[in-house]
């Protein structure tokens, strides 16, 4: 008994997940959208969530930073931890949680403010910068990390909405990075972008993967194969298969996964 526990300890020591969802169920009213999902996200990994439309990917993702709290009919069961701490515990503060677990949406949604103010928004509300130079520093760092700095450094005061779609999406990523999150959730970040912009965002995800735990929802198999190390296949609210991306794409264990990957449905 003792030995088993210590064994487990050493195991978790080596692969301690950044975020861990255990047996998560989500309901919209009576609609059971996510069914008993257990999934872990790791610090230095990109996890791709794939599956046909309506299978609950977004819903699951939105549980991880409690964005589902904003939907009145939504009820979440199960346990989700960030660094071992239950994020649904009353002790946990949503505002902090969402700062630590950033999110990028399907459609770029820059605020109707200047590029600078878009990026500075998060640090300002969380009080991350004491001085204007600190703030400038954070903004430029975030924009650099998002690979946007060179394109916008001369027009930081122009409105964020005036950028191209791909630039807007990278601005949104910069905005998320600026609050220094530990996890980044991306819900189909490239579905509104053209191939060139998509390539840029994918390159960016590659850049970011070492420092953040990243979960990305995508409908593109190629994208999942390109950017992720782990892949989770959802189907009708179930997590059908979860494992190394190469494995899932080359030798899926489940028939449903194989059918989906080969384009038999979905």
């Amino acid at each position: 008994m003792y030995k088993m526990a210590s064994e487990l300890e050493t195991m978790t020591e080596t692969r301690k997940p950044k975020m861990l969802a255990e047996n998560v169920n989500v309901f919209y009213g009576t609609n059971h959208a996510v069914k008993g999902i257990t999934l872990d996200l790791h610090q230095d990994e990109v996890t791709a969530l794939i599956g046909p439309s309506g299978c609950g990917k977004s819903t699951f993702l939105r549980c991880l930073n409690r964005m589902n709290d904003t939907v009145a009919s939504c009820r979440v069961e199960g346990r989700i931890t960030l660094d071992g701490e239950d994020i649904y515990a009353s002790r946990i503060d949503v505002v902090q949680l969402r700062a630590r677990v950033g999110m990028v949406f399907q459609k770029p949604n820059p605020f109707p403010k200047s590029i600078y103010d878009n990026v500075a928004y998060g640090p300002r509300i969380h009080g991350l910068a004491q001085t204007r130079t600190d703030l400038d520093e954070i903004v430029s760092t975030a924009l650099e990390k998002a690979g946007l700095w060179n394109e916008v450094k001369d027009r930081l005061e122009s409105p964020g909405t005036a950028l191209s779609g791909g630039q807007q999406q990278r601005l949104c990523i910069a905005r998320a990075i600026a609050v220094n999150p530990e996890v980044i959730l991306m819900d189909e970040p490239c579905s509104a972008l053209d191939p060139i912009a998509t390539a840029k965002v994918e390159a960016l995800i590659d850049e970011l993967k070492g420092r953040y735990a990243i979960a990305i929802v995508t409908h593109s198999m190629q994208q999942a194969a390109r950017v992720s190390q782990k892949t989770a296949f959802f189907h009708m609210g179930d997590l059908v298969e979860h494992g190394d991306t190469t494995e899932i794409f080359t030798a899926p264990k489940q028939e449903r996964t194989r059918d989906y990957i080969t384009g038999r449905f979905g």
């Binding site: 930073n65 964005m67 904003t70 949503v94 505002v95 902090q96 949680l97 969402r98 700062a99 950033g102 999110m103 949406f105 459609k107 949604n109 820059p110 605020f111 109707p112 928004y121 998060g122 509300i125 969380h126 949104c172 905005r175 998320a176 609050v179």
Partner: peptide
């Protein structure tokens, strides 16, 4: 005002 703007702000941890 599109809900996506609101969501964007809330997701950054704004009240």
């Amino acid at each position: 005002v599109p809900k996506s703007l609101k969501d964007g702000s809330l997701a950054l941890g704004a009240t």
